[in-house]
Design a protein around this nucleic acid. Structure first.
Lengths: 123, 123
DNA sequence: CTTGATCCTCACGTTGACGTGAGGTTCTAG
DNA sequence: CTAGAACCTCACGTCAACGTGAGGATCAAG
């Protein structure tokens, strides 16, 4: 498959795919003229990469984790990285949840203000 | 209170506090010699700012929200911003949760590999 | 054969929340 | 009164995941 099709089906930019290759996350072989050729599996692989990026993992972390998908061989570094990132994500979810709760408070207060009759300018 | 003390008590760097002032998030008056003077309330304010930064809000968004804490007057922009950011945070939590689940899968597989007797080199 | 879509490789630009000196002033404890 | 801690204002550096041309080759269709 050519790069444009992979980009379309995985929902990323062509530039992003070239960047992933530069980072060693996706390996593409080349046609005689130098155009990248991807296997079908690349689409799912890229989607997975996007999932991890969206969770705040850096290229380096993803690079350490991805080989496991190919070989199903877990080195100690890979296992450690998996658990580290999982822990980090949990911490991040907790922080987001706290922020969400605080925003909910403010939204409630805001709604109360909107409904306060004496302070409404109109009507 | 002086900037160093605020930084220590709020758990941020002195540089960060100057940056917050530059962004209009924390207003400090000055001593005759030009040193920043903060009220006690600044510590809580900065902690709240940190909470929002940790949740991925940008300075601009925080700047739109913060006046509500002071005046308890909600403009339509503030209410909209509050709800937009809340929605964004929810989406982000969902993404993180999906990533967490995927990592859990991999961690399980990794553990199974570790326990596979035939593939252990030692012993 | 030609034309428009798609691809290639550089390589610099972007963004945000600070870090990090440089060079100088002010405060405070002894 | 003096040294060191703490403060000040520039102002450039950082880092990551791409965006965005520049300038050119290749491919698919008519």
């Amino acid at each position: 498959m050519r790069i444009g099709k992979v980009a379309e089906r995985a929902g990323v930019s062509v530039r992003a795919l070239r960047y992933y290759e530069e980072q060693g996350l996706v390996i593409a072989d080349r046609s005689p003229s130098g155009h990248r050729r991807y296997p079908e599996s690349a689409v799912e692989r890229v989607k997975f990469i996007q999932l991890l990026y969206a969770a705040g993992l850096a290229s380096k972390a993803i690079r350490q984790i991805l080989p496991f998908l190919d070989t199903l061989v877990a080195t100690p570094q890979m296992t450690r990285r998996l658990m580290d990132e999982r822990a980090r994500i949990r911490v991040q979810i907790d922080a987001l949840t706290r922020a969400q709760d605080r925003l909910d408070e403010l939204i409630r207060l805001s709604a109360e203000y909107e409904n306060a009759p004496a302070t409404c300018s109109a009507t």
